[in-house]
Design a protein around this nucleic acid. Structure first.
Lengths: 212, 212
DNA sequence: CAGTTTATCGAACGATCGCTCTATAATCGT
DNA sequence: ACGATTATAGAGCGATCGTTCGATAAACTG
């Protein structure tokens, strides 16, 4: 039986918001890997880069994650794995259709921002990581797209959308959000809340089209 | 003096729309490299991958392009190097402000689509390619962003835009376009013209906000 | 405390990386 | 036709890649 050790335990995986304990070596590796993967991509980051930046031996990566792809998947696990469910929950709530869609976008924005590097890292990936990792990534992105397509369909059925090409609308929304993850810097002039507000407005007007 | 040989000559670089001559080996390399770079990224594609896929020796890459980065830069050269100027020219024309902005977006879309893989390849790049190549790429992206910021500013001065955060609007537009390059497939249901129309509508409504 | 499991390191392996070198065709200018 | 330049191939170099292995230290289990 695996006993709990040090700061690991039941708390998330790399978040470490339980108390102010020092991070596990495993968490330290995840943190470092996210940083490098998001900056240089999967193939652009070597196992040694990660280990050196984290100040330990490469063997630890194989001890904790099996191999490079396992490390990639572990990051996917704790960061965006649950995103589709969160978005679906928002869309199942019983609000006014338009305000519900606005909430959907804002939830997506703030959830992505809370794992900004991770989300960007998976959005940017193109198929550099080997088959299993890549297909899992693609599957999540497809799930998210489907949520938006469904949302657009319902909005259209309710008469809010004036185009038949709802899938293009869904793609556009994903494009705006994924790009936001690339340009947003936490030390910028505006607070994230305000930025999300602006982006949500843009998306809403783009989707709803000319008011009547 | 370097004389002209075979199919090369004054015709573009990799396009080869002059006659139906067989492509130069240099063009063949560019074509293959674009395909692989766009699929697997810069670090994810090796010199040997490219040479093998093109059916020739690695030496040719060094003969024609000096090194791997030179190949990357040669692609940038013929594909998106002139994009900022083209967009600027559109924006300097004397049309109705709103229709001029619509034309700007549609020009951007069709110009990017005519070099879809190349544009996607540069949009996706994060800094895997070494310093010179990356900074040139970043510079072009910044130029394009600035064009949109300027366009938004003028639209706002003319009373068409209802937010002060024009830079966020500009980012949103870039996000939509760069994402379009990732999802669009030429063999899809809709013709490109129709897709561009839809995207331009989305962007216009997003930028102009609620009609009054 | 003894024995097992976990954590960590450093060395090493074969494969592949970007790149250079040398040799040989092919094509050019004159 | 002939020397010079260009085009292409293939072998090979040092570096780095992902990964494995054996050793050792630390921690847990009974």
């Amino acid at each position: 039986m695996k006993a709990l050790r040090r700061g690991e335990a039941w708390s998330g995986a790399a978040g470490g918001q339980a108390g102010h304990e020092e991070p596990t070596r495993r968490e330290e590796l995840l943190r470092t890997a996210v940083d490098l993967f998001a900056r240089y991509g999967y193939t652009g980051t070597s196992i040694r880069d990660i280990a050196n930046a984290a100040g330990m031996s490469v063997s630890n990566i194989y001890h904790y994650f099996g191999n490079k792809e396992g490390l990639w998947l572990a990051i996917l696990e704790y960061s965006i794995n649950g995103l589709p469910d969160r978005l679906n929950a928002v869309w199942q709530s019983d609000l006014d259709p338009v305000e519900r869609f606005r909430l959907l976008v804002k939830t997506h924005l703030s959830a992505s921002k809370s794992h900004q590097k991770e989300t960007r890292m998976f959005f940017i990936d193109q198929g550099e990581v080997s088959h299993r990792g890549n297909s899992r990534n693609k599957a999540i992105q497809t799930q998210i797209l489907d949520i938006y397509v469904q949302a657009m369909d319902e909005l259209r059925a309710a008469g809010y959308v004036h185009t038949r090409e709802v899938k293009i609308l869904a793609f556009n929304v994903l494009g705006v959000i994924s790009w936001y993850l690339r340009w947003y810097r936490a030390d910028g002039r505006l607070p994230a809340e305000k930025v999300h507000e602006e982006i949500a407005n843009f998306v809403l007007h783009g989707v709803l089209g000319p008011a009547e």
